[in-house]
Design a protein around this nucleic acid. Structure first.
Length: 597
RNA sequence: AGCGAGGUGGAGCAGUCUGGAGUGCUCGUCGGGCCCAUAACCCGGAGGUCGCGUGGUUCAAAUCCCGCCCUCGCUACCA
């Protein structure tokens, strides 16, 4: 049996629910995998979750749920995300799997035998309060930002990996391995700054995989995590393609090949580093509260709408993404261009019929170009090219006027072209592509339900159809727009659910590592004292906030921000670009905890 | 600070590597066409000194070189 083409995504931390970035990566990988398969290749596709990270433990602890239970719950939502996104993975790995930890230990053992792991002294600034090491730049005035105490210089025994040994070899590998080129260059220039050996053990950690022959240490989670590609390969190693985000490029470009070199395991062929999604030009982060939930989007708009809108994003560069962008793309491209074309052609065929003829229209389709883009992993450009052919089809209908000419041959060409379009789109929007295929392969082609129900932000009304006939304006009839779905209007019942209160700020504190966030303790009268995180640091000094009465959204689902549970949010006005932020305050003196509404 | 990316009609992009009339795409806007289709589809217009130096190279610069300004990202556990 020949080896399968092996594709992986990064494995995700399960310290929180999946966000849109996770969906982005999975969809890219899936579309690519489906395309490969459509070319007759046998593809093995691995995705999964990193469950051994310390972060997971922290998140579990602060939400008061046992680690295992917490992880199982979050892993389930990542599995659900894959299912709802139609991700056609072959294997889903969890790094707590026994099989995985056995493989990890084996490889680590090999590296030890190779003499590439040695015991040394780890020296760092340790804050007793945090029970964690800090680097110089984490500190504020040389003090731990959380406890405002000088950390102590602490030394402990640890295991180190001889990363520096592989510097030369890595520099040779990277240019061919990393895609796009500029990501490879970034890494290379960092290697030139010096490659230090890395600490690969964690002493006294309770979660994770133990060192072989030394139970006092857990293996650094990255070694563990990276090896998922190997342990989950199911006999298909080496990987042909790793798909990851730019944030973990270093680990995949440098540490990962070094580990494999040391363990004498073949190297993966390509590393595909995609960019990030931003919201309204801003980085997505929990502290900004602008994280988009893919599960919610799917629920609201459907799998293919989410897949399509994500796949239209530039793969290598960072791209702006928002619900509004999703809706715009969905309406303009899926509903108006493609959906409408399917409707008009199937409707015409139902009325007129078809007659076989050579397909001249399809000549406008540049399939070579599309394949070229796909081979270069430029999915967005391939998709663009397909849609430019869809434009050609719409132009063709317009030009040939088959509703007038009753030309069955033209309709045959359109039918054939749409079948081709469906084939080309199936890696991107499998469900809709399948529908198109089915519609146009039927013996008796009929106009079906709209393929993409259009989304409108306001309630649709009946609109008069105004037509100009021979230069004279004529109101034809009141036509109810078809296939319009209304969203984003809030029922009074929904509004009522919101518990808004007046609250007074009692304490303002910095949060370590957060440059925008304050931790606020607020007095909400009968509801007691609550802790919230607010991104106000750029706009308000601590003194200006202290003892202010603000409007507080009390029953907002609590969320973790920088390791702190934010129990609700305060209301503030902000300009579009978020450059100006102003708190909303009660007009006159009211009691803490007063209801608003 | 270092490294990286970018500055192209009102918005967002492509074009720059490999120089050839400001060309293209999506949205918006204005006008027209069409009445098959999900108010969709098609055609056309307006709108830009391609960040600045009226810098250099060249017959020719958005594209190559130099300088400057501005914005954004990354800097070792974030997809």
């Amino acid at each position: 049996m020949t080896k399968k083409f092996y594709v992986t995504t990064a494995i995700d931390y399960v310290n929180a629910e999946p966000h849109i970035g996770h969906a982005f990566e999975k969809v890219i990988a899936d579309a690519f995998v489906r395309w490969k398969r459509s070319k007759g290749e046998n593809v093995f596709f691995l995705t999964g979750v990193d469950e051994n990270a310390q972060k997971n433990v922290q998140a579990a602890e602060s939400s008061g749920i046992p680690v295992k239970e917490f992880i199982d719950k979050n892993t389930a939502s990542f599995v659900e995300l894959c299912r709802k996104l139609d991700i056609s993975y072959s294997n889903f790995i969890r790094t707590t799997d026994k099989k995985h930890s056995i493989e990890v230990k084996k490889i680590v053992k090999k590296i030890i035998d190779e003499g590439d792991i040695y015991k040394g002294i780890y020296e760092g600034l340790y804050c007793v309060g945090c029970e964690a090491y800090y680097t110089e730049k984490d500190l504020i005035d040389g003090k731990c930002p959380e406890h405002n105490k000088k950390p102590e210089l602490r030394k402990e025994e640890a295991y180190f990996f001889k990363l520096s040994k592989y510097e030369k070899e890595l520099k040779k590998i990277i240019p061919k391995y990393v895609l796009p080129k500029f990501r490879g260059n970034e890494v290379l220039s960092r290697i030139d700054e010096g490659l230090k050996d890395i600490c690969v053990s964690r002493k006294g950690a309770t979660w994770g995989i133990s060192f072989p022959n030394d139970e006092n240490y857990k293996i650094w989670v990255w070694i563990d995590a990276l090896l998922n590609y190997y342990s989950g390969a199911d006999g298909n190693w080496p990987a042909d393609l790793h798909i990851i985000g730019k944030g973990i490029n270093w680990f995949h470009s440098v540490i990962w090949p070094a580990i494999l070199l040391s363990a004498k395991v073949p190297l993966p062929k390509k590393l595909f580093v995609h960019g990030y999604l931003n919201t309204e030009g801003k980085k997505m982060s929990k502290s900004l509260g602008n994280v988009i939930s893919p599960l919610k989007l799917i629920e609201k708009y459907g799998t293919d709408a989410v897949r399509y809108s994500l796949l239209r994003c530039s793969v290598f560069e960072d791209t702006d993404y928002s619900e509004r962008i999703l809706v715009t793309r969905y309406n303009n491209e899926l509903a108006n261009k493609l959906g409408n074309l399917v409707s008009r052609v199937s409707g015409l065929i139902e009325k007129t019929g078809i007659e076989k003829t050579p397909n001249k229209l399809i000549k406008k389709l540049n399939e070579k170009k599309i394949n070229k883009f796909m081979e270069n992993y430029e999915l967005d450009k391939a998709l663009n090219e397909i849609f430019s052919f869809i434009d050609n089809c719409n132009e063709y209908v317009q030009k040939k006027k088959p509703w007038e000419t009753k030309d069955k041959k033209v309709l045959y060409e359109l039918k054939e072209s749409l079948l081709k379009v469906a084939e080309l789109l199936s890696p991107f929007i499998p469900e809709s592509a399948e529908k198109i295929k089915k519609d146009f392969s039927a013996k008796k082609i009929k106009k079906g339900e709209p393929l993409f129900v259009k989304i409108e932000f306001s309630t649709p009304k009946s609109v008069p159809q105004i037509m100009k006939v021979n230069g004279k304006e004529k109101i034809n009839k009141f036509k109810k727009p078809e296939g319009i779905m209304s969203v984003d209007e809030v029922e009074f019942k929904e509004w009522e659910k919101m518990d808004l209160r007046v609250a007074q700020i009692k304490k303002v504190e910095d949060i370590p590592g957060a440059d925008k966030l304050y931790k606020l303790s607020i007095d909400v009268g009968e509801l007691g004292v609550r802790i919230i995180c607010a991104g106000l640091k750029e706009f308000y000094t601590k003194d200006r906030l202290k003892s202010k009465k603000i409007i507080y959204f009390a029953n907002l689902k609590p969320r973790m921000m920088k390791g702190i549970e934010s129990q609700g949010m305060l209301l503030a006005a902000s300009t579009e670009d978020h450059k100006k932020v102003s708190l909303i305050l009660p007009d006159s003196e009211v009691e803490n905890g007063s209801r608003i509404g």
